[in-house]
Design a protein around this nucleic acid. Structure first.
Length: 154
DNA sequence: GCCAACGTTGGC
DNA sequence: GCCAACGTTGGC
């Protein structure tokens, strides 16, 4: 099983929005970066666990856990001229962009903030903390996953 | 293929 | 609002 971290701005789509979705499930559309797309398309498998990260907000950090419940399929929002993430170069015959479905697992008992994560030498290699990394989807290894969960009740 | 200009992300 | 760090675009 693989572990991931996915970013979203809570003003647009936060952990509570996922919680309130029918079946507590949503497609993760709008990813328009090739590296992130490749991870979703090729590597994200059903059952993979994902940290939900709130970005661009008062206290950026990890707020919950979700899991992959559907593997990659074309991101149809790329075909819709009225959609914010419309991409004229993508079409149903040859889609450029893919997405997965994720399901709410649980909220963390507290927000494990970016500020806190940065203080931990154990997380020096976490992709989220690497200089200049703006990817919206990043891998987390098993050790990092366990360490971060260990912070929850610390 | 190079690279300058531009747009976006996202922490602060 | 600022700005660093990219990724993308397009002229050449």
């Amino acid at each position: 099983m693989n572990y991931w971290l996915m970013k979203s701005e809570p003003d647009t789509f936060g952990i509570d929005d996922l919680f309130n979705r029918p079946d507590q499930t949503e497609h993760w559309d709008g990813v328009r970066n090739y590296q992130a797309r490749n991870m979703m398309r090729d590597d994200m498998k059903i059952g993979d666990q994902v940290f939900f990260y709130h970005s661009n907000c008062d206290e950026p950090g990890i707020v919950g856990i979700m899991q992959v419940v559907r593997e990659s399929y074309p991101d149809f929002t790329a075909f819709d001229p009225d959609d914010k993430h419309f991409d004229p170069k993508s079409n149903p015959d040859k889609p450029s962009w893919y997405m997965v479905d994720v399901k709410f697992v649980r909220k963390l008992s507290r927000n494990i903030s970016l500020r806190e994560l940065k203080l931990k030498p154990e997380l020096a290699d976490l992709a989220l903390l690497r200089r200049g990394n703006r990817l919206s989807i990043m891998p987390v290894n098993a050790e990092q996953w366990a360490f971060i969960l260990g912070l929850e009740n610390a």
